[in-house]
Design a protein around this nucleic acid. Structure first.
Lengths: 203, 203
DNA sequence: ACATTTGTTAACCAAACGGTTAAACTAAAT
DNA sequence: ATTTAGTTTAACCGTTTGGTTAACAAATGT
């Protein structure tokens, strides 16, 4: 990607930056802390990524490129709506359990700078809702599901899948569950959520 | 609350701090910026609130105290489950449309410092899930709703109501809707969400 | 009227910050 | 062996940051 021949250090930096940025956000992260975590001199961060902003953007793009294809599964897959919902919720929740910081990081930083999404659109494969829309409209017309707009259904699917990871401290406090119990709850959601959605839209 | 007699300045500071903290978070906010927005000298911030941390905590507690009673409506109200869900989604979405920064701010900062919730529990009236749990269990036993745990239902209700406000930049991008259309979608959710939930749990 | 407390200001401070520099090191190319 | 280009380091720099200070103004109490 750049003029550099040996990208070992470059990758070390990106990995460390990922951890720090995802834990503390752009504003809370410190270049020195990233350098420490990568076990290299702070000047190297600037040597490879020029500025904090550019390093951050590299991390963000990588994270987004990991998340976007997941959403593509619900928007552009060829299977039936019911199968889609089942597969998506199961796969997505499994995926996020492995990357629990990801959705919160992306949502947080997009809220901090909403214009940032434009920059991403040009760099990362960006799914469109069009195909999903046709599918939902068809099923509504056929009478196999209740009347609902594709956008609302899409929001509901995302909400039920993502929110428990984004708001975990809040939910833990209100639902009065400890970390271990919460993990069990999340595991159960792989099935619970698809049942819930399918029940909600089935006639 | 404190030794200060004239609380006009104190309130001006809190209002300004609220706006800045909710827009930029603890790490992104600058004391000088808060002072500017409050049209007062920066030293006054420290005179009234001693430190950035304490000013932030005052803002956070105030925000949390605004949100908590809303959740209390679903956890401790006496009405039937169906009425509760209808009323809550309608009232909650109306409430958040007026305070769109609130849920994101609270979720954000709780993720930044999860231990913070303990401090809050001692200061703000904190609803418990117990009553709601009994109600759900009873309705499951009676066969009026499908088998679902109170915790999962609670998470689902929160997710469907709150997520669209927290993740709006992400949803707008993927669902390909502009700001005005999104507002319309949110308005429609006052009814859409309760229909969706009730459909999902009805037998 | 005067003294004391409370409120406000501009100037200041040390620490932390992102970023730069210049010199040293490494290793392949000539 | 010497040049050359890429890599790494410690020391440094200007700015910004949260926070302090000391002098001053406005109330308040006696």
């Amino acid at each position: 990607m750049t003029k550099h021949k040996d990208n070992k250090t470059e990758e070390q930096i990106l990995e460390a930056a990922q951890k720090i940025f995802q834990a503390k956000g752009m504003d809370g992260a410190r270049m020195q802390e990233i350098a420490d975590k990568a076990s290299i001199n702070k000047a190297m961060l600037h040597y490879y990524y020029r500025s904090k902003q550019l390093l951050f953007e590299a991390v963000f793009k990588k994270a987004f490129a990991l998340l976007a294809p997941q959403l593509n599964a619900i928007l552009n897959d060829d299977s039936s709506l019911e199968d889609k919902i089942k597969n998506f919720t199961h796969n997505y929740i499994s995926f996020i359990i492995k990357h629990p910081y990801l959705p919160n990081f992306i949502i947080q930083e997009l809220n901090r700078n909403p214009k940032f999404i434009e920059k991403i659109k040009n760099n990362v494969a960006f799914p469109s809702i069009d195909k999903f829309k046709l599918q939902v409209q068809k099923e509504v017309k056929n009478g196999t599901i209740v009347s609902i707009s594709a956008e609302q259904l899409f929001i509901n699917i995302l909400a039920l899948n993502i929110f428990p990871f984004v708001a975990s401290p809040l939910i833990k406090a209100f639902a009065n569950v400890d970390d271990r119990t919460y993990k069990t709850l999340l595991e159960a959601r792989k099935k619970e959520v698809s049942d819930f959605i399918i029940n909600a839209i089935k006639k």
